[in-house]
Nucleic acid binder design. Structure first.
Lengths: 184, 184
DNA sequence: AATTTCATGTAACCAGTTACATGATTCA
DNA sequence: TGAATCATGTAACTGGTTACATGAAATT
């Protein structure tokens, strides 16, 4: 129990393999070409990560067509793997997740559709809005406390951060609306 | 020459010390409390990073009040360090910088004010807008190519990414405008 | 007197990067 | 025939995380 936390790369791999069985090479291609994958990916990271997930029992790797001269190792998700995904995407959202791991939050959202119901998704989005709003208030307070003189660069940089969080909150509200329309 | 690239943490430290001489502890406090610092910071990372920068000659560390019982090691920027900052902030912006190191881009912007003139800053912002616009087009193409059916999560996640890039471009245009007003 | 804060660090561990190695298969 | 692509990996290096160690000074 209370296994060591998975890295974002491992979570991304787990989520992708839960969608469909895949080989290491296919996963490499996905990371190379898919635009939403800001989760880094060199073969030197992917193959070891797959091995780790396999050793832990979250994935089942098996060599297919071992008779052929070029065997392919295909990974499929295991039951424990699926459980791990479900509890991962259901985790409450903390301030620190937003600040240090917002990529992982979006990854959670992207994979959520296949593993939990619409209600869980709207809980996620509602929580996200709350956490962002709280953090935006913090940043705004800091912004107000900033010295006026000197070059505006620091102030502007902070404003960029504020803008990006505000846009994320706006997105979440919009998404919430769209899901509501689907549900009703 | 052609030294190994500095990590974002090292660049952040360099920039902060260029503003004013500081001790390791002060830097730790800044990272703990300052909101714009998404550049991580535990003492276990900071102290070794300062040593590396010192060894490379980008910083000058010297123990102050060595007579006192609790000495403080204060770092100041060196001439080579200042040069390194200037060439760092003057680097052209690549697509990959936007995708993988956008935090570092904002760090560059924040420190730019003290090291280069307004024209360099507007060049930076202009380039940034160009790079973002190009990448947004890429993402939009991908968005159009996405399958319609199934759960909307993947599509929505991509839209979040699009929004955040668009908001960054809008910020850059606004900043450009504000700098223009200052300059004229 | 006890706790918190100041102040500097080290050590074990781990994951990711870069670069390389290997060889089959397909395509021009 | 030679190049690109398919497919799987390893090894060295590096930098960050966590956790710990040490002890003075200030605060309660």
């Amino acid at each position: 129990m209370a296994q060591r936390k998975l890295s974002s790369l491992e979570l991304a791999l787990l989520g992708l393999i839960a969608q469909a069985p895949r080989s290491g090479y296919e996963l490499c291609r996905i990371f190379e070409t898919s635009p939403m994958m800001h989760y880094s990916a060199s073969p030197g990271a992917i193959y070891p990560a797959l091995k780790r997930l396999d050793r832990r029992g979250l994935l089942l790797g098996q060599v297919e067509r071992s008779d052929a001269l070029r065997p392919v190792r295909t990974y499929r998700i295991s039951d424990t793997g699926r459980d791990a995904i479900v509890s991962w995407v259901s985790l409450p959202i903390k301030r620190d997740d937003l600040i240090w791991r917002s990529d992982e939050l979006m990854l959670r959202f992207a994979f959520m559709g296949q593993h939990v119901d619409l209600e869980a998704t709207s809980r996620f989005l509602t929580e996200l809005v709350e956490v962002i709003d709280a953090y935006v208030s913090e940043l705004e307070a800091h912004h107000r406390g900033m010295p006026e003189g000197g070059s505006p660069h620091g102030r502007l940089a902070l404003e960029q951060g504020l803008d990006s969080y505000r846009s994320m909150a706006a997105w979440a509200r919009r998404a919430l609306g769209r899901l509501g329309n689907v549900a009703n």
